[in-house]
Amino acid sequence: MEPVPLAMDLARWHPPASRRPQPDADVPALATWRVRPDLGAPGIRRIRTGLAPLDGLLDGGFSPGQLAELAGPQTSGRTRVLLGTLAGVTAHGAWAALVDATDALDPPSAAALGITLDRLLWVRCGRRLDVAWRAADLLVRSGGFELVAVDLGDLPPWTLGRTPSGVFVRLQRAVERAPTGVLIAAPRRVAGSLAAVAVALVPQRLRWGQGGPGLLAGLEIEARLVRSRTRAPGAGVRLRWTVLETDRAGSETAHAGARAAPGAPG
């Protein structure tokens, strides 16, 4: 049997975009493509988000050696996707770094989501964007982190727009030589064409609970692929989340304060 050249072998897993089935507007993209979330190209490691439809949209997850972007306004699930991806990285023993431009990380939320905190390096930048980029550059060049996430939080567009494009060129050059993935989460896209993958998150519907521990019961959003080097952009999936209930359950037994039940008199 004649050995299959590597390029052909990879092509078998990555058919040209023209031969792939095109997503129907009414049918979730995941159902059309039938891609297992943990199944990317063979031999290529993926950084999973943990959300099966989104991983399907991304061919198994984000790729190391690439710059990826998550763009979305507040309450669009952007932080949920970011922290979920960090949780996936730390869950299998790797180190991840979070460059937190606005000090927005809520460690209890991160821990409840499943992030192994002792493997997460948290860099708090105090709303200094230039410091955040320099920190990200240092971390990417170190090569010891599987994922370097840059959370730009709620920085206003005029601040984001002041980032020189050279920052992204430098970051992209660094990451393509490193076994590291870079994921930038921001209210809007910032890296332009230097990002290999960009996902836009658009909130669709807030769901309100009826008498549960919290009023806010969940969120439904649409994740749309707006840039990809491997498939035509435009495909989207719907994601649904419910509110983290452990926060309100008050199940902690040893703490320095006391927490009253909902609605209890103060």
Binding site: G50, L51, A52, Q74, G77, T79, R80, L83, T102, D103, A104, L105, D106, S109, A110, A112, L113, G153, D154, L216, G218, L219, L239, R240, W241, T242, V243, L244, D247
Partner: peptide, 9 residues
Amino acid sequence: GATLVRRRL
């Protein structure tokens, strides 16, 4: 997937 997280201000 059954989680929504908080972002601190």
